[in-house]
Amino acid sequence: MGGFVPVATLAQLAPGEVIGVEIDGVELALARDGDGDVHALADRCSHGDVALSDGDVDSGAIECWKHGSQFDLTTGRPRQLPAVVPVPVYPVHVDPATGTIGVDPTAPTIN
């Protein structure tokens, strides 16, 4: 498998929101920042092993609900302790005609 897989639409993901999606067993946190850009990260906090999709999105980061670690939406790098290990980020494509959000689950980047 390769390429972008449709997972949601912009209508399903308002700015400042995050949802959990799964593609062939790969669990992702799909987040939309305040500027409207969409990001996909692994849906596991590298510190607490809980779903990041249950957290909050603010100021270009997603915050883990359990211990407050924050991860940069673009790089996956921790911005705040207790996490010190980044989470993988995945390529995202938004079709401008339909608003369909696609994620490539085969191309994670760890920064």
Results as ranks from 00 to 15, higher is better:
residue 27 E to A: 13
residue 67 H to T: 01
residue 17 E to I: 04
residue 9 T to H: 08
residue 7 V to F: 04
residue 84 V to I: 14
residue 70 Q to E: 15
residue 99 G to Y: 01
residue 49 D to P: 05
residue 86 P to G: 08
residue 47 H to N: 06
residue 18 V to P: 03
residue 83 A to G: 10
residue 33 D to Q: 01
residue 11 A to M: 14
residue 104 D to W: 04
residue 12 Q to Y: 01
residue 95 D to A: 06
residue 55 G to W: 06
residue 75 T to Y: 01
residue 104 D to M: 10
residue 37 D to E: 15
residue 2 G to C: 14
residue 42 A to Q: 10
residue 34 G to I: 02
residue 79 R to I: 08
residue 72 D to R: 03
residue 85 V to H: 15
residue 32 R to Q: 11
residue 20 G to D: 04
residue 60 G to M: 08
residue 86 P to E: 13
residue 60 G to V: 00
residue 99 G to F: 04
residue 65 W to Q: 14
residue 66 K to T: 08
residue 28 L to P: 02
residue 100 T to F: 08
residue 97 A to D: 14
residue 102 G to I: 02
residue 48 G to R: 15
residue 16 G to K: 07
residue 63 E to T: 07
residue 82 P to Q: 11
residue 44 R to A: 13
residue 101 I to A: 05
residue 12 Q to L: 06
residue 35 D to S: 14
residue 43 D to A: 12
residue 3 G to W: 04
residue 102 G to S: 04
residue 55 G to H: 07
residue 20 G to S: 04
residue 108 P to M: 09
residue 48 G to K: 14
residue 52 L to Q: 14
residue 77 R to V: 09
residue 57 V to W: 07
residue 88 P to C: 01
residue 68 G to K: 11
residue 108 P to L: 09
residue 19 I to W: 03
residue 95 D to R: 10
residue 24 D to H: 10
residue 24 D to V: 07
residue 87 V to H: 05
residue 70 Q to F: 10
residue 87 V to P: 00
residue 106 T to M: 08
residue 46 S to M: 01
residue 106 T to W: 06
residue 61 A to D: 05
residue 78 P to L: 08
residue 13 L to Y: 05
residue 56 D to L: 15
residue 70 Q to P: 12
residue 5 V to Y: 11
residue 70 Q to A: 14
residue 40 A to R: 04
residue 78 P to V: 01
residue 62 I to S: 12
residue 92 V to Q: 09
residue 13 L to N: 03
